[in-house]
Amino acid sequence: MVRAWRANLREERLSELPGHALVGVVNMPTHTVSPVRAIARRVLFALLALVAVVFVVYLERDGYRDVNGDGLSLLDCFYYATVTLSTTGYGDITPVSETARLVNTVLITPLRVLFLIVLIGTTLEVLTERSRQAFRIQNWRRTVRDHVVVIGFGTKGRSAVNALLAEEDSDPSQVVVVDTDRAALDAASARGLITVHGSATRSDVLRVAGVQRARAVVVAPNRDDTAVLVTLSARELAPKARILVSVREAENVHLLKQSGADQVVVSSETAGRLLGIATRTPRVVDMVEDLLTPETGLAIAERPVEPSEEGGSPRHLSDIVLGLVRNGILYRVDAPEADSLEPGDRLLYVKKVSAGEETVS
């Protein structure tokens, strides 16, 4: 009982944590810079700061005193700039005039700070990146709306994301992947997706992913019992979101429907049907695969009925129409309800997609 209470307390606190506390749980995609370029950039900044100090000191060399008493040469200026910026400060060359001391206070001291920042840039960069991530996470959690949450980034989850990103106007930042596998999340982040590390069976992890404001939730875990638990939690948090679930066994479909799933895909039976068809008509399987791959070839698309098409039959259109959607209900093209097109209907049709063109839905 005490353990359950503590677990619930941790869940409640997770979704209320500020952005800096969620760094490592939520990952916002970033543009990485190669190590060679990063090092070269820091060296360049350090050299620029060094040259700037040398130039300023050389212009005011009469205001400095050298222990040798022979004045400052250009080499002495480089020496002074180096020991000053590195905070070594041997004291053999010192500013004595008011102008030189003013320049040291106003200009050389800030350059010294900049030089030190360059020297310890790796540590500061980590801290800066963490702060930047915290700010972006906080801003994202405040503004995210109508996104798609994908639970599980295995084979099914990756395929679902591929189909989502193949759509026109698709934005990778509008797809959030939830998984417990760090390697899978790294792969998703490399594609520009936002990732959340944690178990989707926890309601608080789903809150962090913004499920309560999502337009759709794709549930694609490796276990059917996990799919049921995730669906129950997602439906409780997002009553209006469309929840799409993949399961292995058909006997679990009714459980998912009762749990709140809008659509359930039985992966094992679908694969089995295609294998059975392939034994007799393998080209049919190739055609189905082509239709389900939206990048090239043929694809199943959806579009609204145009005003000029209203009142006509979908069978007489130039497009190959498979069915129509009316008031949220799908009718096959040979159904009596599909004899005449009405305003507001949407057509499911076969579209030819060339390389570089995307399916419009």
Results as ranks from 00 to 15, higher is better:
residue 117 I to A: 07
residue 293 T to N: 07
residue 270 T to M: 15
residue 41 R to W: 08
residue 135 F to Q: 07
residue 107 L to H: 02
residue 196 V to L: 09
residue 252 N to H: 12
residue 150 V to N: 04
residue 116 L to G: 06
residue 207 R to D: 02
residue 150 V to E: 06
residue 220 A to Q: 02
residue 212 Q to V: 00
residue 301 A to E: 13
residue 349 Y to W: 12
residue 251 E to L: 10
residue 143 T to F: 12
residue 264 V to I: 11
residue 103 V to P: 01
residue 174 Q to G: 12
residue 73 S to W: 06
residue 128 T to H: 09
residue 98 E to W: 09
residue 79 Y to F: 14
residue 105 T to H: 03
residue 277 I to P: 00
residue 96 V to R: 07
residue 215 R to V: 11
residue 180 T to F: 03
residue 130 R to V: 13
residue 162 N to K: 13
residue 61 R to N: 11
residue 298 L to R: 05
residue 111 L to M: 14
residue 217 V to T: 08
residue 49 A to Q: 02
residue 229 L to A: 07
residue 7 A to T: 07
residue 84 T to S: 12
residue 352 K to N: 10
residue 122 T to S: 05
residue 70 D to Q: 11
residue 156 K to N: 09
residue 84 T to G: 04
residue 256 L to T: 07
residue 177 V to I: 15
residue 128 T to S: 08
residue 104 N to M: 12
residue 104 N to K: 04
residue 239 P to C: 02
residue 57 V to S: 00
residue 319 D to I: 06
residue 228 V to W: 01
residue 220 A to V: 00
residue 273 R to V: 14
residue 124 L to I: 12
residue 283 R to V: 15
residue 114 L to W: 11
residue 89 G to V: 10
residue 332 R to G: 13
residue 259 S to L: 07
residue 203 S to L: 09
residue 3 R to S: 15
residue 268 S to I: 05
residue 202 R to T: 07
residue 253 V to Q: 06
residue 352 K to Q: 14
residue 87 T to E: 12
residue 177 V to N: 03
residue 54 V to H: 00
residue 182 R to V: 13
residue 117 I to N: 05
residue 169 D to E: 15
residue 251 E to S: 15
residue 3 R to C: 05
residue 15 S to L: 01
residue 212 Q to F: 01
residue 331 Y to K: 06
residue 86 S to F: 11
residue 296 T to A: 02
residue 123 T to E: 00
residue 331 Y to G: 04
residue 77 C to K: 06
residue 227 A to P: 06
residue 183 A to Q: 14
residue 230 V to E: 02
residue 345 D to H: 01
residue 23 V to Q: 04
residue 349 Y to M: 09
residue 296 T to C: 05
residue 12 E to V: 12
residue 216 A to H: 03
residue 185 L to K: 03
residue 90 Y to Q: 13
residue 88 T to V: 13
residue 101 R to G: 12
residue 256 L to C: 11
residue 263 Q to E: 13
residue 233 S to L: 01
residue 188 A to I: 08
residue 110 P to E: 01
residue 282 P to M: 01
residue 194 I to Q: 04
residue 335 A to Q: 09
residue 74 L to H: 11
residue 27 N to L: 12
residue 260 G to L: 04
residue 248 R to T: 09
